[in-house]
C-alpha cells in the first residue's frame, strides 16, 4: 500500500509501471486519474488546500477499509495539493487484484471516499474571480451504496 500527498506533478507512466512492478500474481490492475477541469477554458488555476496529518490519516483509513472489503494485492493513492493548472493530474488511484471485479470495485470505493472524507478543498481561480468548489449532495449520496 502506497500513499503519497505531494505538491509536485507526478509521472503517470512511471507511477503505473512502478505499481505494477511491485506486484506478484495479480491478474488485474485498475488505475484512475483525476484531472483539473478547465470549465470550458475559463479556469486559469486550481488551488488545493489540505489538512496535513489528517489527510494522510484519513486516506490510510480509507485504504485499510478497501483492503478489508476486497481481496487486493495492492493499492496506491497519490493526491496533490497547491496550485495546479488546467488539465493537470490532481490525483491517481491504482488497485490490483487477482480478478478485475475486485480491482474495479475497490477503485470506485476509494474514489467515492476520497471525494468527501479526505480533507482537501478546491478553489477555482478563473476569469470570473475565485470560488471554492462546493461539495455536491451526490458525492455524499455516493457513499451510501457501499
Amino acid at each position: 500500500m502506497q500513499l503519497v500527498v505531494q505538491e509536485d506533478r507526478f509521472d503517470i507512466g512511471r507511477e503505473t509501471e512502478g505499481f505494477i512492478a511491485g506486484l506478484a500474481g495479480a491478474g488485474a490492475v485498475v488505475t484512475f486519474i483525476g484531472l483539473v477541469r478547465d470549465n470550458g477554458g475559463r479556469l486559469s488555476a486550481m488551488e488545493i488546500e489540505h489538512y496535513p496529518g489528517m489527510t494522510e490519516r484519513a486516506i490510510a483509513a480509507i485504504m485499510e477499509e478497501a483492503k478489508a472489503r476486497w481481496s487486493l494485492a495492492d493499492a496506491m493513492v497519490i493526491h496533490r495539493h497547491g496550485r495546479l493548472g488546467p488539465d493537470e493530474p490532481i490525483m491517481m488511484v491504482a488497485t490490483a487484484a487477482i480478478h478485475r471485479a475486485d480491482a474495479f470495485a475497490a477503485a470506485e470505493f476509494l474514489m467515492d471516499y476520497l471525494k468527501s472524507r479526505a480533507p482537501f478543498w478546491k478553489k477555482e481561480i478563473g476569469a470570473d474571480g475565485t470560488e471554492w468548489v462546493a461539495a455536491k449532495d451526490s458525492d455524499e449520496a455516493a457513499l451510501t451504496r457501499w
Partner: peptide, 8 residues
Amino acid sequence: FFPPMTGG
C-alpha cells in the same frame, strides 16, 4: 473547522 471536503 472546515467546509465539506472536496477531494478526488
